[in-house]
Design a protein around this nucleic acid. Sequence first.
DNA 1: TTGTTCAGGTGACAATGTCATCTGAAGTGT
DNA 2: ACACTTCAGATGACATTGTCACCTGAACAA
Lengths: 197, 197
Amino acid sequence: MVSRVESAAATRRALLDAAADLLDSGGPDAVTLRAVGARAGVTRGAPYRHFPDKDSLLTAVAAEALDRLADQVRDVRADPRVPPADKLNRALSSLMTVGRRQPHLYRLMFASPAGDPTAIRAAVQAADRAQDEFLAVVGDLVGAQHTRQFAALLLTSVHGITDMEVSGHLSADKWHITAEELVSTLVSMIDRQARSG
Amino acid sequence: MVSRVESAAATRRALLDAAADLLDSGGPDAVTLRAVGARAGVTRGAPYRHFPDKDSLLTAVAAEALDRLADQVRDVRADPRVPPADKLNRALSSLMTVGRRQPHLYRLMFASPAGDPTAIRAAVQAADRAQDEFLAVVGDLVGAQHTRQFAALLLTSVHGITDMEVSGHLSADKWHITAEELVSTLVSMIDRQARSG
DNA sequence: TTGTTCAGGTGACAATGTCATCTGAAGTGT
DNA sequence: ACACTTCAGATGACATTGTCACCTGAACAA
């Protein structure tokens, strides 16, 4: 902790964690640079030594979350204890779980990345990797023929289900159906389609 | 225009239009109360005579957009010139078109409504009505049995497709498929499912 | 030991949301 | 016709925020 680069790296990490924590607990409005700095043990101006501006900091938070998601999906795919038939559901669940446990972070992950071009590139790459992992999971299940088509449909649909549930637009009163039921309906439809077509 | 209530109503309308215009052209950051006031021909403080706070103004903008969407879907459903087989696609298209032509407005429509409880209620009601119109369109096509299930799946999925396209997360390079193709794949899958099951 | 680099602190500034207060004209009662 | 009330909008003010220029002290290199 005496080294300057170590100390700087620790501060950067603390800033990212502080921003993510504040986002989770208080929503986007709670994420002020002053609050982030205070929670990270530094003052207002310090974040500017590590990020060009606020948007870039938030985009970096999103990129890390997308990277964690990609890791989770990769782990599910590689885990031999998970039955192959469960892998897709598990992968989709890890996406929905982010939405439910960290709704504000979820919105950030699927927003258009903003800020510094470097930060944007990192977020796009992380999102790309997450999508690739999903693609691989789907590829393990269906023939190479329609892998992309089915994977894209699954990913976009489950995102839509999650997003509307998170924002409260998926009223249980009206639809009489849960997000889980929607996902499993979709999966079984695609499954049937993949076998027949 | 001499009457006081008429003048006030005109100002309120101008404020809503100004906020929507600014949102379209410059994104959420461009929507400041000062800019809204200026575009509506009044000054900073005037909006507070018509809306409790900024969030309520934005929520009112979202509510109006949701109402327009509901109207469009209702019109498609009622229009005898539209072949029944096209009605669902037309209804879904009207949703996707909002996303493409007014991405910032689209995000606002599907965000959690904020601000004054009255404004929130209006937005929730408008969203409810839009969903009911979609439900009716789907109900015209499939038996009453799984109407809700299919309608919910269509609505959430098409929202997810639109949202990811709008935010740039649906890379054509990676997926080799357009949003339209995804929607038509989904519709034909549901169609097949409805006939068989 | 001396000079350099750089993480972080500090003061300042413009923009913004919000409110209290003021003003003038539209509306109302007599 | 006149005085009184109401209220849309203007104005001044304030706290908060993102951002930057500048300063400081300690970790490094020479």
